[in-house]
Design a protein around this nucleic acid. Structure first.
Lengths: 143, 143
DNA sequence: TTTCAATGTTGCATAATGCAACACTGAGCG
DNA sequence: CGCTCAGTGTTGCATTATGCAACATTGAAA
């Protein structure tokens, strides 16, 4: 009995993550706030990962090098990122420009507000618990 | 102070959902199990929504009619869905074929197993709570 | 019965992606 | 100290998902 319920709950987890993904994709096609979904993801990863190179992004996102190469070229064209000229070593290290940091902060705020609306009526503890579960879930995939 | 923590947790919720979306997209590009991400989503929506027409799918998924038209054509070519010939009325009602039901069940099982692995070490109560939070979160978006 | 709005389809364009071939460069070896 | 090669990045070409707009179809209502 406990097992059946557990399986049902696991199925629900998958189904609702699928819905989240579908809706996130749909939203990202229509509104490209200050930043595209791809741009936001990349900037955040660069900001959070000191010494990161294009190849690292490709691995982290399961994308082809060529795809990342083009996306990074776009970020640089937009003045959001740049190569760390002070760096020596294999490959080229990416860093955010001031503009990049600023745009990322703005974009994050926009999205945080959307999520805030959707979490109306949730207690602080419920949100904290939800965030913790999401983090735990993602950590399990990083292994 | 509670507010700061709440904001931080909300930001974490967004960030980790972004990761989930990114990874789901990446996985769906590489492995198309028995079914593609799009196919699985569509079949599940058709299965769960009696009397559904292509236009309903377009609205639910925020896709253009033309896109859905082509995707549905693919499902029919693959023998996964069909028009309900017994139906009269505006538009054409979609139903799953036996093969469609079967493939959806198989695909759901595959994904449930993946999720099961990632939820190793979680108690039944923790999973139930996570599923409930995801459902609650998605419901808030349907309004 | 006729008309029209709702629904579905198709031609054309765009964006994201993969693959493969090529170009560049630093690390380590002789 | 210079050479070679593996690691990294770029570019040409193809594919897929998507949107838009024009067109086709069809049931609902006058």
């Amino acid at each position: 009995m406990g097992t059946d319920q557990r399986d049902a709950d696991i199925q629900a987890v998958y189904n609702h993550m699928q819905v989240i993904t579908r809706r996130a994709n749909a939203r990202s096609r229509h509104l490209a706030e200050p930043l595209t979904f791809v741009e936001h993801s990349l900037l955040r990863f660069i900001a959070d990962t000191p010494g990161v190179r294009a190849i690292d992004i490709a691995e982290a996102f399961s994308l082809n090098r060529s795809t990342v190469s083009r996306q990074v070229a776009t970020l640089i064209e937009l003045g959001l990122a740049n190569y760390d000229e002070t760096d020596a070593g294999r490959g080229r290290v990416l860093v955010l420009t001031d503009h990049g940091h600023q745009q990322l902060a703005t974009s994050a705020q926009v999205h945080r507000e959307v999520v805030t609306d959707r979490l109306t009526g949730w207690s602080n503890a419920e949100i904290a618990s939800f965030a913790a579960a999401l983090i735990r879930y993602n950590d399990a995939d990083s292994k």
